[in-house]
């Protein structure tokens, strides 16, 4: 169970998401406190990615309320959407890097979109690339990088704007164990700097390595919520 004294960065109340007659999310209610690490787990098709997409409003809930960093997503229009997205850092399974832009430009995009000055952009991007261990790849284009390196660029892009919440959708799914380990270390580093992590994953190594809360989804419903000691604290259905 989450600590009620903490600030909640994500709150979902009885959220449903349907695609036509198929329901991807059914009546999910959950809370994520600031500074937490939360794992969304479950088998393929359980609704993990959909749940994350609802948080960064790539998908709109069919029913229910979602509040992210004080913003009620059902009440924000397309004009406020960029502001919500700038408060978040999203890491995608398929990296989603722009092939025609260098590593530096891919990461800088977030700060350019936020209207930062070039000098500040240069400083922040190089700092985050240094932390990710890919400083020397700054002028390289993503297609010439390995999968692990590309994911490190994606993590750098997600954290460069110092978001309060980082959403990661299967961040290690397409990586070898060494690269996955590096990504985990990186996520740990940024969590230690104060970011809240919500990670959708199958990878038990990540879950056991990073102390956090696990929310298990099955067929769109929250099956169990557990802390990392594997102690079951709540059963939703």
């Amino acid at each position: 169970m989450t600590d009620p004294s903490k600030n909640m960065i994500v709150r979902m109340f009885d959220v449903y998401k349907a695609y036509g007659k198929t329901s991807a999310i059914k009546g999910v209610s959950l809370e994520v406190a600031s500074g937490d690490i939360v794992f969304i787990t479950g088998p393929s098709g359980a609704g993990k990615s959909t749940l994350l997409k609802l948080i960064y409003k790539a998908e709109v809930a069919t029913q229910g309320q979602i509040i992210v960093d004080g913003m009620n997503l059902s009440r924000i229009g397309s004009r406020q959407l960029p502001e919500l997205r700038r408060r978040l850092g999203v890491i995608f399974q398929d990296f989603k890097l722009i092939a025609g832009r260098s590593v530096f430009d891919n990461v800088a995009l977030v700060l350019e979109a936020a209207g930062e000055k070039p000098k500040i952009i240069e400083k922040k991007v190089m700092s985050v690339l240094r932390t990710a261990g890919i400083e020397e790849k700054a002028r390289v284009f993503p297609p010439s990088l390995s999968g692990g390196e590309q994911q490190r660029v994606a993590v750098s892009r997600a954290v460069v704007g110092s978001p309060r919440l980082i959403l990661a959708d299967e961040p290690t799914a397409s990586l070898d164990p060494d690269s996955a380990e590096q990504i985990m270390q990186l996520l740990e580093t940024f969590h230690a700097r104060g970011a809240t992590l919500v990670i959708a994953t199958h990878n038990r190594r990540i879950i056991s390595r990073l102390k956090g809360r696990e929310i298990r989804l099955e067929r769109g419903c929250v099956k169990t919520q557990e802390i990392s000691s594997d102690h079951e604290v709540e059963e939703n259905q």
Binding site: P82, E83, R86, L88, K96, I98, L109, E112, A113, A114
Partner: peptide, 16 residues
């Protein structure tokens, strides 16, 4: 289109 989609995901305004 793909680049535009990524820009939207990272919070770029439509004007940008």
């Amino acid at each position: 289109k793909e680049e535009v989609e990524i820009m939207r995901l990272v919070g770029a305004e439509e004007g940008f």
